[in-house]
Design a protein around this nucleic acid. Sequence first.
DNA 1: TTGTCATTCTAACGATTATTAGAGTGCTGG
DNA 2: CCAGCACTCTAATAATCGTTAGAATGACAA
Lengths: 258, 258
Amino acid sequence: MDSRSIKDLLYEQVSRIGKAVSSPKRLELIELLSQGEKTVETLARQLSADVKLTSAHLRTLKEARLVVFRREGPYVIYRLAGDDVAGLWVNLRQVAEANLAELQVAVQRMVAHPDKLSRIGCAELMAKARRQEVVVVDVRPAEEFDAAHLPFARSMPLAEIRKRLSELPKDLEIVAYCRGPFCLMSDEALTLLRKHGYRASKIREGVSEWQAAGLPLEQAAPGRSPVKEAVAASKQQRSRNGGATRRLESVANHMPKS
Amino acid sequence: MDSRSIKDLLYEQVSRIGKAVSSPKRLELIELLSQGEKTVETLARQLSADVKLTSAHLRTLKEARLVVFRREGPYVIYRLAGDDVAGLWVNLRQVAEANLAELQVAVQRMVAHPDKLSRIGCAELMAKARRQEVVVVDVRPAEEFDAAHLPFARSMPLAEIRKRLSELPKDLEIVAYCRGPFCLMSDEALTLLRKHGYRASKIREGVSEWQAAGLPLEQAAPGRSPVKEAVAASKQQRSRNGGATRRLESVANHMPKS
DNA sequence: TTGTCATTCTAACGATTATTAGAGTGCTGG
DNA sequence: CCAGCACTCTAATAATCGTTAGAATGACAA
């Protein structure tokens, strides 16, 4: 075996990781999974994609050993194979943002407008949060908060924030965060909070960026599992459409081909 | 513009970086370029590939903004767009090595057999090198040594090592390094040195790994440019085959299609 | 057992990508 | 100017990938 074929073999293997991160949908799956383990159905919903397509992408991620799964009842629950995978995603995003001018412009205009960003750094933010001079709000779904969150943060999912506005103080600065620089949830929260007269800003960082920077995280006592989220969501869907869609689809699937 | 299409746009951009690193040849180009800037011809030779194919891959890397180029006389010289690109390559390789069992086995058997590796860590190695208790040898081509090398290292390219054996002391441990964990040059050097009775070992790390770990590097005063390497190599090739190949190829290219 | 639900597998398509050949561009020395 | 060299562009092929539909699996509940 000569030197060339050994090299080909080695680079070939690394390129499996490269291929796995060469699709936008798979990158988004990695971002979602770096917030905590999830069922296929939850992932499909959060990806706004078909379950079949989601499953197919998860398969290629699995073949590249970037994700692993386990069964729990009728559900299949995926999670990242290791913290290094979330770190790789952060690294990829940073390189993209540093080198692709299009991305810089898009991020600035869509999600990270200077007006919205908190002007203080991470270390200072934590110090202020410790002294209760700011309120750090995690607007992600509760399951993701439970899996891991920033120290001193309180969970206030975007879906509930409108009803729970009274829990927030008007005299303190509120700093929101969500899944990371590409997530729009903290922006929506900001719009809502500012409309109601709160002093609110956001940070771009999510738990992955926090972890990649070597900063500490906290996690809730286990209790809520990804299955509960999935069950709740599917119930909600069924009650919304009265269970009709599912049956219609089922019938449609068994119709002859015209 | 809704939230979904914004996200699609953002992930799409990052996937451009992913696509760029999804081919083994392009990964190898990144590794080669992280040793210093090089001409297309040099890259093609070190990649054992056609100049045309090399140029095509460099083009896609250029479109992903991972490399930039400049002209120097008749030569086009490529280099990485930034240090973060070399860091990304190191990160990718680490994730691959951590998660792909096939790669672990291959690396252990081919390039990083425990017998060959130096048992001391990087920090200690530098301390010993400073006190001249070990000799750190850079076996890469001289141009790459000039671009950046480990502190206290001396350049002894693999091609010249046989003639220059007498420069090395028999009583000290010799520690070789090359382009990184996938490079076979330090292994070849080791085999040669041990056959001649030297106490020699290697480290897996190259300058990129060194830099990614936050350790300092040194570089030679500018003088040797990548063009000189290219000129030297092409002269060598011409003298080896008496200038025949090039002319034959040239004629063949202009032959009618039979 | 049968039915239901969550998920995966198989097969197929259209769209990309890798690779190669041939022609073309830009630089340099005569 | 021309010839020679380094490299890139264009076009064409074969291979691979993303996506979808339909069938199949595996777990559970009646």
